[in-house]
Design a protein around this nucleic acid. Structure first.
Lengths: 230, 230
DNA sequence: CCAAAAGTGTTCATCGTACACCCATGT
DNA sequence: ACATGGGTGTACGATGAACACTTTTGG
């Protein structure tokens, strides 16, 4: 008999911290849902699900995100594995947490609604079940670190966006206001953005130029050993 | 019947990347062992073991480290969870990887030897089983990042150490040589070290002053919102 | 013409980096 | 006296942070 068959087996779950950016309110938000099963039915929680035999853990995370949002091909990163004995009072469950960055408007809003899910500002997250609050804390910290070292802000915005919009996003991530001259200068000096011949006219009379993230320029920079830093 | 009982269960393992610093050779090393069981018997691997029902994942990592080194109370950090379908050809196993920083001379050298384990320079790690090479790569990168943002170098050195020793360690971690004037200035300016009235005389005629890491000073700095950076 | 947001330059302090010589001592 | 590693200071460029006014245009 092979060695490993002697050992115990465990339920393995995946929980996802799904971030989105609300441009109107200029707020960073997370997608929460009300549990419709026991234990803790009716309480707020992260989106999650159980690992299956025929999928890798990464694949499970993607499947679960797609179930809720309809989205595939999304920025996802493994966050941490939560393995305390009593983290779920119902049973021993090991949970691998992921965080995802999505464009809210690209998601299937009906599907989200049907799951009883809601976008909640990161600054006013209610009490969550189990250790899900700790998961969000950890995810936010990691997002803040990532945002300094990789151009992931663009994952949260539409393909076309203005500099003031992008600044609003970073202000929401760091929860502090930034100097717009310094922000613009640093950002443009990285040579990652392509300026479009089109203005956004909703939020000001003057209008702000649209830009687009240039994936190719970014890859060129990486290959030359560049280190993104905001 | 509770919801979760419908789902599949999995073997969960813990694998540890154990770092140590060899002062004589000025090399960063990892502890590897020859597997004495199937599959892949006789090949090189990391230290690992299976999770048990009565312990958290963190506790399992500590237990496994202690089995090999005799050490408890060691710097350990969860690294990443490896969950590919075919990562272990023998069976579906989810592995939670940890990395540990230990003082080689404080470990139980007999115990290590009896496990068939060997300290191998990070620069010449042989081919390892499964995805263990990827684990080491990831661990080294994380160590390099941590070493810039937290004073964890001290975990790898004896309680008393000299500045040149500490510099040698950082050079081994980053695999590049550092300027000793800049290194010393930055380090001392952080006000983390206590100078002892004693010199190390083995490695030079002049002798180098011993220092000690001052945990209390470090905590004071953290509370004042200090950010360690080398 | 005015309100409201977009856009633009300069100065200063700080920090990282490069660099060369003297010191202490055991043999 | 000399070889070996320990210990010290300075100058320069780059980077981050602070700061106020002009531009555009819809109403």
């Amino acid at each position: 008999m092979p060695y490993y068959l002697e050992h115990e087996k465990f339920h393995v779950a995946v929980d996802s911290i799904i971030f989105g950016y609300d441009e109107e309110g200029r707020k960073l938000k997370v997608l929460l849902l009300k549990r419709n099963f026991q234990p803790s039915k009716g309480e707020w929680s992260l989106m999650g699900g159980f690992l299956k035999n025929d999928e890798s853990v990464d694949e499970a995370a993607k499947r679960i995100l797609q179930q809720l949002t309809g989205l595939s091909d999304v920025y996802m990163e493994q966050l941490y594995t939560f393995g305390e004995l009593d983290r779920d009072p119902g049973a021993r469950i090991i949970s691998v947490a992921y965080f995802a960055l999505i464009k809210i408007n690209a998601s299937d809003l009906e599907l989200v609604k049907n799951h009883g899910a809601t976008w909640v500002p990161i600054t006013s997250v209610p009490k969550l079940i189990f250790d899900h609050s700790a998961m969000i804390d950890k995810a936010l910290k990691k997002l803040q670190i990532r945002a300094r070292t990789q151009p992931i802000g663009f994952e949260l915005l539409p393909d076309k966006f203005t500099i003031p919009q992008l600044q609003g996003l970073y202000e929401a991530i760091y929860n502090k206001s930034l100097d717009k001259r310094n922000f613009r200068r640093k950002l443009l000096s990285m040579d990652l953005l392509e300026k479009l011949e089109e203005k956004e006219k909703e939020s000001s009379r003057k209008g702000a130029w649209y830009y687009r993230f240039d994936q190719k320029k970014y890859e060129d920079l990486l290959n030359r050993g560049f280190n993104f830093e905001l």
